[in-house]
Design a protein around this nucleic acid. Sequence first.
DNA 1: CGAACACTTGAACCTAATCAATGAGTGTGG
DNA 2: CCACACTCATTGATTAGGTTCAAGTGTTCG
Lengths: 232, 232
Amino acid sequence: MSRWEFPAILAEAQPLQGLGTESLDDVWRSGQTLEFQANEEVFSQGDPAERCYVLLEGHVKLLQVNAEGEQFMIGFITPGEIFACVAAFGEDVYPASAIAVQPSRAVGWTCETFRELIARHPGIGRNVMDTLGQRLQNSRERAAEMATKSSEQRIAGALLRLARRRSDRPAKNGELMEPIRVSRQDIASMSGTGLYTVSRTLQTWARRGLVTVARQQVSVTDPDGLQRLFDG
Amino acid sequence: MSRWEFPAILAEAQPLQGLGTESLDDVWRSGQTLEFQANEEVFSQGDPAERCYVLLEGHVKLLQVNAEGEQFMIGFITPGEIFACVAAFGEDVYPASAIAVQPSRAVGWTCETFRELIARHPGIGRNVMDTLGQRLQNSRERAAEMATKSSEQRIAGALLRLARRRSDRPAKNGELMEPIRVSRQDIASMSGTGLYTVSRTLQTWARRGLVTVARQQVSVTDPDGLQRLFDG
DNA sequence: CGAACACTTGAACCTAATCAATGAGTGTGG
DNA sequence: CCACACTCATTGATTAGGTTCAAGTGTTCG
């Protein structure tokens, strides 16, 4: 039982599309709401996989660290999205770390509970399969991108993904998009390049008017130009 | 209605684990068996997504081609595995091409039929979610690998994945593994490098006794050594 | 036998990683 | 409020890893 009222965002969440009020209520009552501060870890790579989550508020990044200590950002979660759902199926440890990049709130269910919910409400299963399918395709495209594209193209791809996530609604005057709040290192982790390369590339683009940059912040001023760069 | 008897491999197929005889029969009767010659296309990237498949016999590779014409191999399917299942969920066109590398046989269901089967037999849904989850994790690891590892490590990774697939049963005398029948170009597509780099790398390894090479063929003679190389 | 194909190898070139030094913004405590 | 330390970012110089081009060898097949 949670001390929060049923959050509106949950009814719009991907995995719960098409569910009736009573189903949504069952889902809501079966989970716990959890709060995280900026930079707090939701869970850590290698920990036993206990819960899966739907994000209600804030943003969470998913980071994978390999044996050599190099990190790679495999995802960026926005409100309404499910994460760590892989944990509920087969995997016994979390394959990545989840870190809140802003103060965030999420609902969590134990893997067991989540499986039961799917059994009780088959619509959830269908939605989760859809989501997993889309993410699998995304991830494969991303792998192909890492393998075949230049570092400049990969950085463009990373920025475009972030920008599109942030402002699903078209920008105010069709010109400027919301600034993205990430460090150069974060962009490097997303695009599979180094900090220095990202810095240089962004400077070049800024001179050409494609983006404007600041500390911990990038604004895409010419999405179409960036897209053309990405396409080659 | 198929002109084939119920194939034993189907009962062992990942997506059909834990199903009763009558369920298996329903699944079998709902699909069509299809045969493919070596190098024949099962479906082509961009085609409208109509069917998903379980491979019964042979091997199928999944290739993604980007706008610039560079190709990247996203998967290698062995008997008992499901493929194109993403097609059944949301996607309207195949995101990759599937090509039989040997004479192959598969069962196919239309997306609609497959959805109905999942509704009738919830176990299939659970299995598919498990499979999708595992593949998502694999694909993410692969993306991270492409982003952070050297070309030598990526080639080692590709060979190890292939070798393990081929001989789940340990090799005869614990020393030699079955030769893998792929071209240098295929290895390049899997590891995100070029044909020349693959050739050079394999030659170096052959001199060191890690592998033996021939036309359209690679045998891993020292899997552990290759693994150490992969780990760095 | 000739043609097509798969592969190897040397050499030139180029991208991007790395090293090193510096600058700019943020936050803390005296 | 300023000085200090700290984190984040820029930029030049250097270098290594890998791609690409070019030429040549060995195999398979009609």
